[in-house]
Simulated scan of single mutants.
Amino acid sequence: MEREKIVTVVNDFLVNEFEVDRDDIVNDANFKETLGLDSLDYIDMVVVIESNFGVKLGEADFKRVITFDDFYDTIETKISEKVA
């Protein structure tokens, strides 16, 4: 899956499912601070990612995520690993 498609899908579900202002979703913005998610939100996010991309993110994956770019990279890597 192309990076552009991943970014579009992620941003759309963040806006629609997590009520994030689209203007706040900036590649180098702090992911956790911008979203302000609690632990249940992260579980919901794992479900949404799995349903949209067919990959599952774990706690270790989220620990590496600092920016939105990191989040996109993580999903892109998981998709590549699944395909390989």
Rank of each mutant, 00 (worst) to 15 (best):
1 M>H: 12
1 M>V: 15
2 E>D: 08
5 K>Q: 10
8 T>D: 13
8 T>F: 09
12 D>R: 09
13 F>K: 12
15 V>F: 10
17 E>V: 02
17 E>C: 05
19 E>N: 13
20 V>E: 05
22 R>Q: 12
22 R>D: 11
22 R>Y: 09
23 D>K: 15
23 D>A: 12
23 D>H: 07
24 D>I: 03
26 V>R: 11
27 N>P: 15
27 N>L: 15
29 A>N: 06
31 F>H: 00
32 K>L: 04
33 E>Q: 13
34 T>C: 04
37 L>R: 09
39 S>D: 13
40 L>A: 06
40 L>T: 09
43 I>C: 02
44 D>P: 01
44 D>T: 09
46 V>P: 06
46 V>A: 14
47 V>K: 02
47 V>F: 08
48 V>P: 00
48 V>N: 05
50 E>S: 14
52 N>T: 01
54 G>A: 02
54 G>K: 02
54 G>N: 04
55 V>L: 01
55 V>F: 03
56 K>D: 05
56 K>P: 00
58 G>E: 04
58 G>L: 02
60 A>P: 06
60 A>R: 11
61 D>M: 03
61 D>Y: 04
61 D>S: 07
62 F>V: 04
62 F>S: 06
62 F>H: 05
62 F>T: 05
63 K>H: 13
63 K>Q: 15
63 K>M: 15
64 R>E: 10
64 R>P: 01
65 V>N: 14
65 V>C: 14
66 I>E: 12
67 T>E: 09
68 F>Q: 01
68 F>H: 04
70 D>A: 03
70 D>H: 02
71 F>V: 00
72 Y>W: 14
73 D>Q: 12
75 I>H: 07
75 I>L: 05
76 E>G: 05
77 T>L: 15
78 K>M: 10
78 K>F: 10
80 S>R: 09
80 S>L: 09
80 S>D: 08
81 E>M: 14
81 E>Y: 15
82 K>S: 09
82 K>D: 04
82 K>H: 07
83 V>F: 08
83 V>I: 13
83 V>P: 02
84 A>S: 11
